[in-house]
Simulated scan of single mutants.
Amino acid sequence: MNPKGRLYLVPTPLGESGLPPVLPAEVQQRLSAIRHFVVEHSKTARHFLKQIAGLPPLASLELMELSEHTAAKVLPDLLAPLLNGRDVGLLSEAGCPAVADPGASLVRLAHQQGIQVVPLVGPSAILLALMASGLNGQRFCFHGYLPVVQDARDEKILQLEKRSRQENETQIFIETPYRNLRLLEALLQRCNAQTQLCIACNLTLVDEYVFTRAIGEWRQNSLPAIHKRPAVFLLQG
């Protein structure tokens, strides 16, 4: 029986920053030998893969899609190349696979099947934001997206602020880019003036923005230009 392939978790750029600043040459060299990829969206995956030096023509590669809408019954089919001894690269839409990403379900199944999972080095917006925030990096929690409905969102903000204060824990969350300003306005309205808020936007790009202020200071300054720009929010009471 053929030995099983390895599932490589491939970080991708967070924007149009290009590969050299964010992916080491060793990672790109490893990718050039892979012919099977599981991707969130084929179009953006092809744009990424065509930048990998030494990779054969895209037409010769097999791209299988895995998104939040993929049914669980399809996952074993995505593992088929691995069970036949072929390596597979798992790509997120942006950043690290399986972190706030549907790829986690495939990784879990790979472990159940005894497949080796190999994480590769690359950008993580969550960790980059935490590193640059100056907030507590010893205790932190990532919550993904907050509720969309106003009352539920406002209640969640108060819960996170209280938890942060009681546990001395940084609370990290994100929002759909076109709702960034709505979330920021809710934070400024609901949180205590002394609570620290970091906004990290367009990380690794030329117009990267990372700034931490107390809520009271944010209220006295103009709001940053984060509309429709990928952003991470970090809160510490």
Rank of each mutant, 00 (worst) to 15 (best):
I34K: 10
P24G: 09
V121H: 05
P230H: 02
A231G: 05
Y145P: 03
L234E: 05
E175K: 11
N180T: 12
P123F: 03
I199D: 01
F211Q: 05
A214S: 15
I226Y: 00
D154P: 01
L181T: 10
E16R: 14
S67N: 13
V22R: 14
H47W: 00
K43P: 00
A25Q: 14
F142Q: 12
L235W: 01
D207A: 13
N221I: 07
R153E: 04
R30I: 12
Q116D: 15
V74T: 15
S164E: 12
L19G: 09
Q166V: 14
L78H: 11
L146V: 15
R179A: 01
Y178R: 11
C141E: 06
N2E: 04
Q166G: 03
Q194C: 04
P102G: 08
M64Y: 00
A231D: 01
A231I: 07
S60R: 13
V232S: 06
S60W: 00
A100Q: 06
A110Q: 07
F142C: 04
P119Q: 07
A110N: 09
E155H: 13
Y8T: 06
G15M: 14
H111C: 08
A104Q: 07
L205M: 15
Q159S: 13
V121C: 14
A104T: 07
V10G: 07
E161G: 05
R30L: 05
R213V: 06
Q189F: 01
R153P: 09
V210T: 14
L58S: 03
P20M: 07
A110E: 04
G54E: 11
R139L: 03
N180V: 09
D87F: 00
Y178A: 05
K50Q: 12
V27P: 11
A25K: 15
F48Q: 08
G237Q: 08
V121A: 10
V118G: 00
L234N: 11
L91Q: 01
A100P: 00
R165C: 11
F211I: 09
L188H: 10
P97V: 12
L9V: 02
L188S: 13
L130R: 09
P230G: 03
R86E: 08
D154T: 05
V22H: 10
N192Y: 02
L82S: 02
S42A: 15
G134S: 13
N192H: 15
P147H: 03
E26C: 03
I226T: 06
Q138V: 02
Y209D: 09
P177H: 12
C96Y: 00
V206H: 12
C141P: 00
E155T: 08
S32Q: 09
P13Y: 10
R46K: 15
Q220T: 15
G5C: 07
F173W: 08
Q159K: 13
Q138A: 05
R219H: 02
L235A: 03
